[in-house]
């Protein structure tokens, strides 16, 4: 399945990935090739087959409702790009 360049831009924007304009054509080709590969699936008859999300048919385990974590703010924020007064900083959010 061939993608249009505009579709490539749209997907990139959905995934919040800035692409160089001169790379769009490359992405268009490569992504279209990958989708061609993937499109082999469409020929398979899967009617009545339960989708398999996990390799083992296991069941979610439950955790007791207990507070086990302590405040590690200083430790975690040492690696943050920008913090102030214990908050992570981002350009102003408009609601």
């Amino acid at each position: 399945m061939a993608l249009e360049q505009d579709q490539v831009r749209k997907i990139a924007s959905l995934a919040r990935l800035q692409l160089d304009e001169n790379q769009i054509a490359d992405y268009q080709t490569n992504l279209s090739n990958i989708l061609d590969l993937v499109d082999q699936l469409s020929a398979v008859d899967t009617s009545g087959i339960e989708p398999m999300a996990h390799p083992l048919d296991a069941v979610q385990r439950l955790r007791a409702d207990v507070v086990t974590e302590e405040n590690q703010r200083e430790h975690f924020q040492k690696i943050a790009p920008a913090v102030d007064q214990g908050h992570y900083l981002v350009p102003r959010v408009v609601e």
Binding site: A82, D84, Q85, H87, Y88, L89, V90, P91, R92, V93
Partner: peptide, 10 residues
């Protein structure tokens, strides 16, 4: 209070 930025509290 963040000098034109937004502060995130999680």
């Amino acid at each position: 209070g963040f000098d034109g930025m937004s502060g995130i509290d999680l």
